[in-house]
């Protein structure tokens, strides 16, 4: 099968799965599922994980993994809250605080990249350590307390809408389209797939592995930072445990979206569909009154099945 067709095939499958789920849930909930309120709510709920998962997609395409994204989400929100809260010592303007929060997130991403490339620490270990380290920073800097009293405009962003669609969802949609374009049409994207599918061939093709890996990890950090700010607007506070466990949803979205953990394969659109599928499951389960613990079991099983299905298709091809 031709590769474009194969990719489109995988994405089409995901679309079909999503559509089947939507039809089933609409019938089962007597139309509640497809109400405008529920759909916008679903997209809003997907958007934060969706943004984190974009960064995760990049790292997984390189053949790595980033476990620190959840902690960076927490860090970014906390940096913003500490710098702007009207109950703290410092009170910066919102935009300066956003820049600093994103700067801190990018810096953590860079540190991941350096540990992986220069330090030759396996991505799993490097980012596992960074996950704990950054969470420690967040806890220490906030003394483990919620920081509220954030600027009004920042808090209002979470309820703002445009054309009836929440601003948070727009943020996700915009970033996803932007990154999908970057991956397809720029050197950045080409280098990403080249490094992910064959790092030695990439090096022999004149691609600078180090500087590119740094860029990818910085981007992943930035996206987590953006997600952290998005979470901040929803919570209207800096939450020390904010973003905890987000890495798992992000990895699940990327994997369901068809990326290969061995690198070289993955797409932003697939990941977005993966994020929507996970959220639709949660949302549908909620509407149907399924025990949330049972939902957890189902989602876990689906992650395994998604990869199993992918491997099965590959294996059949090879055989």
């Amino acid at each position: 099968m031709k590769s474009n067709q194969r990719k489109a095939f995988a994405e089409r499958n995901l679309l079909i799965i999503l559509a089947v789920m939507a039809v089933y849930l609409t019938i089962a909930t007597k139309g509640n599922f497809s109400s405008w309120d529920n759909i916008t709510n679903l997209i809003r709920q997907s958007s934060i994980n969706g943004v984190v998962a974009i960064g995760m997609t990049l790292i997984i395409i390189t053949g790595g993994i980033d476990l620190s994204v959840g902690s960076i989400v927490g860090l970014s929100g906390m940096v913003y809250a500490l710098l702007t809260s009207n109950r703290g010592d410092i009170q910066m303007t919102s935009s300066l605080a956003i820049i600093l929060a994103l700067g801190a997130s990018a810096l953590i991403g860079l540190a991941n990249g350096v540990a992986v490339h220069k330090g030759k620490v396996p991505p799993f270990i490097a980012t596992l350590g960074m996950m704990t380290l950054v969470r420690g920073i967040v806890m220490y800097s906030s003394s483990g307390r919620m920081i509220s009293g954030l600027p009004m405009g920042f808090r209002e962003f979470s309820v703002a809408t445009m054309l009836g669609i929440p601003a948070l969802a727009w943020t996700w949609i915009f970033l996803a389209i932007f990154m999908a374009f970057v991956l397809k049409y720029t050197m950045y994207g080409r280098n990403l797939y080249a490094i992910g599918s064959n790092i030695e061939a990439a090096r022999l093709s004149g691609i600078n592995i180090g500087s590119n890996l740094y860029k990818f990890y910085v981007t992943a950090g930035l996206f987590s930072g953006i997600a952290g700010l998005m979470l901040g607007t929803r919570m209207a506070a800096g939450v020390p445990t904010g973003g905890q466990g987000y890495e798992l949803d992000a990895i699940a979205s990327v994997v369901i979206g068809g990326a290969s953990l061995s690198g070289g394969v993955g797409s932003i659109f697939g990941t977005a569909l993966g994020a929507l599928i996970i959220q639709t499951l949660r949302n549908g389960g909620n509407l149907l009154g399924v025990d949330p613990f049972i939902m957890q079991i189902i989602i876990g099983a689906i992650i395994i099945l998604a990869v199993f299905f992918d491997q099965y298709l590959k294996g059949r091809k090879a055989g």
Binding site: Y193, A194, N198, L204
Partner: peptide
């Protein structure tokens, strides 16, 4: 390179990607 599979091709990518790599 001598070792085509490990050093030459980007096996998961298409021909266009491979030819245009450099």
């Amino acid at each position: 390179p001598e070792d085509r599979r490990n050093q030459g091709t980007f096996a998961q990518q298409d021909i266009e990607f491979n030819v245009n790599a450099i």
